[in-house]
Amino acid sequence: MSERFEIRFAGSGGQGVILAAVVTGEAAALYENVYAVQSQAYGPEARGGASKSEVVVSHDVIDYPKATRPDLQVILTQKACEEYAHDTKKGGTIILDDFYVSDPPQVDADIYMLPIVRTAKEKLGKEMVTNMVALGATARILELANVIRPDSVKKAILARVPKGTEKLNEQAFEEGYSMMKEKK
């Protein structure tokens, strides 16, 4: 991992992008013993507005708490894609949802179109677990970049989700992880 590794989840309010970032931050801060800061930006509305959430992970104390040039972006809507994809770090990674994002950005990054929402909706039967599928895919990239182990992300998910939903969430995570692993 370089000095700091920046991750951004972006989508629409209600897709769980803030929780995805919180879980990633918890995985880093509580299960990996590295520094992490999570922040978010959202409008006054609870659902439907544009929403983004960021995590910065580092071996050193983190000064500026927000992403400057994200190493990894996970983008779940076309609107968020148009707004945020352009500032990805050169040679970084962008994961896009292939259902809501129709037009991939022209940027210098590894871009992956993954069936995140479709898997949540069709395979797992609950669109609500979209963010957990996204977290699985994220975990694979974080593993390859030597930032956070997938197991720590899984632990953080299980510590946070409501009782009785562990299995569904874990399954969603595994689906996301393997769809990313097939590509990279």
């Binding site: 919180v22 801060a29 992490a36 800061v37 999570q38 922040s39 978010q40 983190i62 708490p65």
Partner: peptide, 9 residues
């Protein structure tokens, strides 16, 4: 707002 809403160890 930044300090209040951000999460940190």
């Amino acid at each position: 707002e930044v300090i209040g809403h951000m999460r940190e160890k």
